[in-house]
């Protein structure tokens, strides 16, 4: 195990402290927009952008803001970035913007963002805060895309449908379909599908974690039995 704090930050964001799967923050947009992989990706990128920028800004002003008023200030910072992202999406990805609708402005209420600002960025330096925001954002995006892909596949029988809304006409070829005969399970696209899907994702993550700790325990025990390098754990 490396002790490099930056590696640990990335690992925390992507896996150990994943905002969606472990902290269960930001569930409202997570559950609402992930009815297709492209929607998930769009919201994920927007959230990552806001999270990174707001983390950076909060870290920069952390010594200037009195602790009594820190939360309103954080919210203001986040709201400014969300507004900027919203306007840019409206300008350059108008179709996607129309689909995601209210959930772009609602990024401001995503508790993962203010959570990171309060828990991490307000106590750490600029570089670390930026990396933390990026890692947490990418971890969140990965869950959004996975859940979106899962629901799209089960509910509609396609993957990356409407990808051209995001990547231009060239991305039409990304679309994958199980065929016209596939009768999708509508439930997967409806809200209950989001809850059930997220439940499965969390269960899978916990299962993998369990396996990993068991394997780790086994590898630690072996050297102990042989009487060599007992202190590496």
């Amino acid at each position: 195990m490396t002790d490099n704090p930056y590696v640990k930050l990335v690992k925390d964001g992507l896996w150990t402290n994943n905002q969606a799967l472990v902290a269960l923050l930001g569930l409202c947009p997570l559950l609402a927009v992930t009815n297709s992989a492209v929607n998930g990706l769009g919201l994920g990128i927007a959230t990552t952008l806001v999270l990174t920028l707001s983390n950076g800004t909060v870290s920069l002003i952390r010594n200037l803001v009195r602790s009594e008023v820190r939360l309103p200030v954080f919210v203001l910072v986040i709201a400014s970035f969300v507004t900027a992202v919203e306007l840019s999406m409206n300008a350059w990805f108008h179709e996607l913007y129309k689909i995601l609708g209210i959930f772009i402005p609602l990024i401001v209420t995503n508790c993962a963002i203010i959570g990171r600002a309060e828990a991490y960025a307000s106590k750490h330096s600029l570089g670390r805060s930026l990396l933390d925001g990026l890692a947490m954002g990418i971890g969140f995006t990965l869950v959004l895309v996975t859940l979106g892909a899962l629901r799209e596949l089960v509910g509609q029988g396609t993957l990356f449908d409407q990808a051209h809304l995001m990547f231009g006409e060239a991305a039409q070829g990304l679309r994958f379909s199980l065929g016209e005969d596939f009768k999708g399970m509508l439930m997967a696209i409806l809200p209950p599908g989001a809850f059930i899907g997220l439940g499965f994702l969390i269960a899978i993550k916990n299962l993998i974690d369990k396996r990993l700790t068991r394997r780790q325990a086994a590898t630690v025990r072996e050297p102990l039995e042989q009487g060599t390098e007992a202190g590496t754990a």
Binding site: K183, M185, L186, M187, A188
Partner: peptide
């Protein structure tokens, strides 16, 4: 209900 909603 799962079926009723998914396959009306």
């Amino acid at each position: 209900v799962l079926l009723l909603i998914s396959y009306p």
